[in-house]
């Protein structure tokens, strides 16, 4: 049955149900149990934001608290996946992936290709992304474009609890390495989520609002900002179609191109920096595929090309706002 739960609970439920279904699924990461040996408290924390809380008691021995060495445990997870397990490794903040580039980019992403299709690497790397959490420049980046650039990786970034559960279950069942990006400001967002398990296929965007005048293409927390902008514009008689990409690699070009062809005005919204971003990628593809359908220049609304500021005032300015998105729609439609 469906009930309203938060994205945090939805992710916990996905891990729980997949661990119950498949004994080869296990979870590893920093403080996901509660900090072994820390005052003798087991299962106290469930990760820094409580996502894995309760799982250790239910699946003893299948949640591994690791040393604070991403290089070591992400490598171990990749190795375990290559040997037939289905590890879910929690990288805590995606910003930390710098020390495990080789394990992800050169190993996990390459095994299937370099072993002639004979090797599979069903590893999921979960990590927090995004700004707005007052966590400063090293814990707030939206680094999705870096992973999308690498063939062999799948990249997922849900915008709500329903999608988070179904996409995480799909990620765990998928036979390729998946980078699962969780926006830290969405953990508390609640939606109707079925208690049963279910999988959402990769490469299927979700049209979260229908509209005929303009298309807003985005993902993650920006879906909520885009919906805010669309609601404001609707009052002024402008109907926006809002596309939540859900998975960035693979990406659902059909839905994006189809909508762009119908509306002729496109705004690409991305919380990442502008250069080589998802927004830039989507803009380029639309221009290539349906240039003649465009009635105005494609607009990009992104974070600026600067580190995420620690000053709350500046951080709020850094994140693309609903107002900026609405202005971009109007700018395209002015043509």
């Amino acid at each position: 049955m469906a009930r309203k739960i938060s994205m945090r609970q939805a992710i916990n439920e996905a891990l729980d149900q997949e661990m119950a279904r498949d004994p080869s699924v296990f979870v590893m990461g920093e403080d996901i149990v509660g900090g072994a040996g820390g005052m003798g408290e087991i299962d106290a924390w469930g990760g820094v934001l409580g996502v894995t809380k309760g799982l250790n008691a239910k699946y003893p021995g299948r949640l591994l608290d690791t040393p604070l060495s991403e290089s070591a445990y992400i490598g171990a997870a990749v190795g375990a996946a290559a040997c037939g397990m289905r590890p879910v490794a929690e990288l805590m903040f995606l910003d930390f992936m710098g020390v495990c580039f080789d394990q992800i980019f050169n190993q996990a992403a390459k095994f299937r290709y370099m072993f002639g299709g004979k090797a599979e690497t069903p590893v999921v790397i979960r990590a927090m992304v995004g700004a707005g959490f007052r966590a400063a420049a090293q814990h707030s980046q939206m680094l999705t474009p870096l992973f999308v650039h690498i063939p062999g990786l799948k990249v997922v970034c849900p915008s709500n609890a329903y999608d988070a559960k179904g996409l995480l279950i799909q990620s765990i069942r998928d036979n390729d390495p998946v980078i699962f990006c969780e926006h830290k400001n969405l953990y508390g967002e609640e939606t109707d989520v079925p208690a049963e398990s279910y999988a959402i296929p990769f490469g299927e965007a979700n049209v979260v609002r229908d509209g005929k005048h303009a298309t807003i293409v985005t993902y993650g927390m920006m879906v909520h900002r885009a919906m805010e902008a669309a609601a404001t514009l609707a009052k002024q008689g402008v109907e926006c179609e809002v596309i939540d990409l859900r998975t960035l690699s693979p990406i659902d070009w059909d839905t994006v191109i189809d909508s762009a062809e119908r509306t002729g005005h496109v705004v690409c919204v991305d919380e990442a920096h502008p250069r080589c971003s998802i927004a830039a990628d989507v803009s380029a593809m639309i221009t290539q595929e349906c240039f003649k359908a465009l009635k105005g220049p494609i607009q990009m609304v992104t974070a600026p090309h600067t580190p995420v500021p620690f000053s709350p005032v500046l951080e709020d300015l850094y994140i693309p706002s609903a107002d900026a998105i609405a202005k971009a729609v109007k700018k395209s439609m002015a043509h």
Partner: peptide, 16 residues
């Protein structure tokens, strides 16, 4: 409606 289609799709995706 969009909601009807969404509801049926969600149902169809449940395991089993």
């Amino acid at each position: 409606s969009r909601q009807l289609v969404d509801d049926v799709l969600k149902y169809k995706r449940l395991d089993g």
